[in-house]
Design a protein around this nucleic acid. Structure first.
Lengths: 188, 188
DNA sequence: AGTTACATGTAAAACGTTACATGATTGT
DNA sequence: ACAATCATGTAACGTTTTACATGTAACT
């Protein structure tokens, strides 16, 4: 999947692995993230598949740059991925829910502390999404040469983040209340 | 992480890999799922760590069963995991959002078709959560010998599923509307 | 006659994380 | 003085997925 994310960015312009990491961290990281070493590894694979080509730019005061450019094959691979409809939903993996599921023997104070901490984290994430304006996206828009459609879709992903975090905080509030009211302290 | 899920279930009673798969598929699958072969591999690891022990039950008409039992070390490992607070949120990985992000050049009809398909899938998932009553959980409750606290927490995870799917459908509706109204057909 | 349920796994590949290694420049 | 930014990667480990392999019994 990361493969297609990298191709997606490289379609706009040629970039280094380091660039790609920086751009992902300011755009897709809330629904798709990757580690630098993983990006380098995936770029190598893509190069082997002839989906991208590399050119080295010599630098004197910094390490040399390896700039990757998407090939026709890369463009075709990306187009094919985008054209294939998703016939399933992405399954969730939520550590908090897993933990909660097995916490029947925990004390309610311990549970409430954990849930309140998570509430704070999600609240912060929500605030961050809400503060992100078009101005904050301007840098990426300029760098990538994004058009109106791109901005519409990028904003839709930000909107998804807002709704997700709002939902999460609401669920935590509800769950905190229920545990505070009904949880029985164990005799075990 | 799967490691702790398996220990969590084995705390209630001794089970085979096959049992664990079946139970996960009817309880945690919406926020934590695993493949059978992954479960078998993880059980092997847990056995090597002395967190569980295995006993073989001979069967004549079915393959022999390998029944796993949690050890004191396993109980301690699980307790330690449960006691450790989560200081971060679980990052999302959502393929639909990733695809959407790079779909600026797609046609609006193609995008709308994909989004409507996803809407249907999430709507179905929502309906399934909503129909799940206590009666449906009864089998697992009886099998695991769950108490009131367990049921409260298990229901909280189901409630999270409902809120998540409601949120997702709402976001899809909103996004479908925006694309229908504002998406420019490309001249590229 | 074909699928599902039961019950175990192996092998290979793909994907992801963490730690390590290098080395200059810029900011605190 | 120390951390951050720039810029590349390797090595080891850990997790997850996909495909393959076996074999009976019950259901459709």
């Amino acid at each position: 999947m990361l493969k297609y994310a990298l191709l997606g960015f490289l379609k706009y312009r040629s970039l280094t692995g380091y660039d790609l990491k920086r751009i992902m961290d300011t755009s897709t990281t809330n629904f798709w993230h990757a580690d630098l070493s993983q990006i380098y590894k995936t770029l190598k694979t893509l190069e082997a598949e002839a989906a991208i080509t590399a050119t080295v730019e010599q630098q004197t005061e910094r390490p040399d740059k390896k700039i990757y450019t998407i090939t026709d094959k890369g463009l075709a691979d990306l187009a094919q991925w985008l054209a294939t409809p998703l016939t399933e939903t992405t399954p969730l993996k939520e550590i908090l829910l897993l933990k909660l599921f097995f916490s029947g023997d925990s004390s309610s104070t311990h549970l409430l502390t954990q849930l309140r901490l998570q509430r704070e984290l999600h609240q912060q994430q929500l605030a961050q999404y809400q503060q992100q304006t078009l101005a904050d996206m301007a840098e990426n828009i300029a760098l990538m040469g994004a058009d109106a459609n791109d901005v519409l879709l990028w904003d839709a992903t930000r909107r998804a983040g807002i709704l997700y975090e709002e939902m999460y905080v609401r669920w935590l509030d509800e769950t905190i209340e229920r545990i505070a009211a009904q949880f029985q302290e164990g005799a075990s």
